[in-house]
Amino acid sequence: MTHSMTAYATGTGTQAEFSWQWDLRGVNAKGLDLRLRVPDWIDGLEAQIRAALTKSLGRGSIHLTLRVTNEGSDQALELDQSALKSVLLALAEVETAAHDAMVSLAPTSAADVLGFRGVLEGGQQSQDTASLGKALIADLGPIIDAFCKMRAAEGVSLQLVLLDHLSQIETLSKKAAALAEARKDKTAVSVQRALDTVLQNGREVDPNRLAQELALLAIKADITEEIDRLAAHVKAARDLLAEDIPVGRRLDFLAQEFNREANTLCSKSSDTELTAVGLELKALIEQMREQIQNVE
């Protein structure tokens, strides 16, 4: 089954005075890139979340945000002066660098500053967070499951699109082969006319050299190997799409090979119809390659 790298999942939960909200989103990437925003006052939580995501996902740029609120806390919120100072200094440095580079930045609000990790402290830190951490990790499982199900559902649609592209490539390859076969007689007539012109001009022709040149012309005009390789690539791509493991990287490599054969076919073509088919192949392969970028 083909899996897409695009998906999202959300969820909420509660335990005693705590409530929380998950937000998990994914887009395509070359590898597995995990970007987490989770409370740092729950010991070991980020490491456990990272391990759970790594176990379930192979590729993608994954953004996970977890917001935890202590509804029962009667302690006032406090600013960590040290963290606040560090954030303000960093912002000033960024704004100076942007000004020097003549880059315009949006104004930073007080809410933005308070959103930085460690700036705003509440009463949660004084709580025993071990049981809360366990509840959060238990609640994460269904979130990841829902995320993977959406990836699979998106993958079904993506697989159908790719299979349709492969069928079109197969059809165009057969059309190119038929055109190449049909032009053989025409090519032979053209070569014979050129040869007759040379001989009529009274030029001496080395028979061995003539045979070599004719053989070279035949090789340059023959697209049999390209057609055969395109057929092999179509079969290989279909086999990959039937596998139940991440195949995006291999499909991406295969798309490059598809494009190589289409380029060679166009360069060998001396016929307008065959060139048109080759260009259509290239456009179709590029469309397929763009879709492949989202395959896990």
Rank of each mutant, 00 (worst) to 15 (best):
S167W: 06
A180L: 02
E17M: 09
E226V: 06
A90Y: 07
A177Y: 10
D33F: 08
L105K: 10
L34Y: 04
I245N: 09
T171A: 14
A211H: 00
E296R: 08
G72D: 06
T108V: 15
K149G: 01
V113K: 01
S157H: 12
T275W: 04
S270K: 11
R59D: 01
F258G: 01
D252S: 15
G141E: 15
S270I: 13
T6H: 08
L281T: 00
T14Y: 04
V38P: 00
T12N: 14
D112V: 12
T54A: 15
R25W: 05
K55S: 14
A146H: 08
T171C: 06
A218C: 07
E93G: 02
R250C: 01
R35M: 08
D145N: 13
R183F: 10
G133Y: 00
G202T: 08
E93F: 03
L24Q: 08
E46W: 10
D222I: 09
S269F: 02
L88T: 13
A231L: 13
G11V: 09
T69Y: 00
D23I: 06
V27F: 05
L199W: 05
A76C: 01
A236I: 10
C148L: 12
N263D: 07
I62W: 01
L120K: 02
D228N: 10
D196Q: 11
G248I: 06
W20E: 07
M5E: 13
Q75Y: 00
Q125C: 02
E121D: 00
Q293T: 06
V205M: 04
N259V: 11
E225A: 14
A90K: 09
A51W: 08
V119Y: 07
A218N: 04
E46S: 13
A153L: 09
R203W: 14
L140K: 00
D206R: 01
A180Q: 03
D222G: 05
L240D: 06
A283K: 14
D139M: 11
T264E: 06
R35H: 14
V189D: 14
V87D: 02
G155R: 01
N294Q: 10
S56Y: 03
E46N: 12
I169K: 01
V191A: 01
M1F: 12
S131F: 05
A92K: 15
K184A: 04
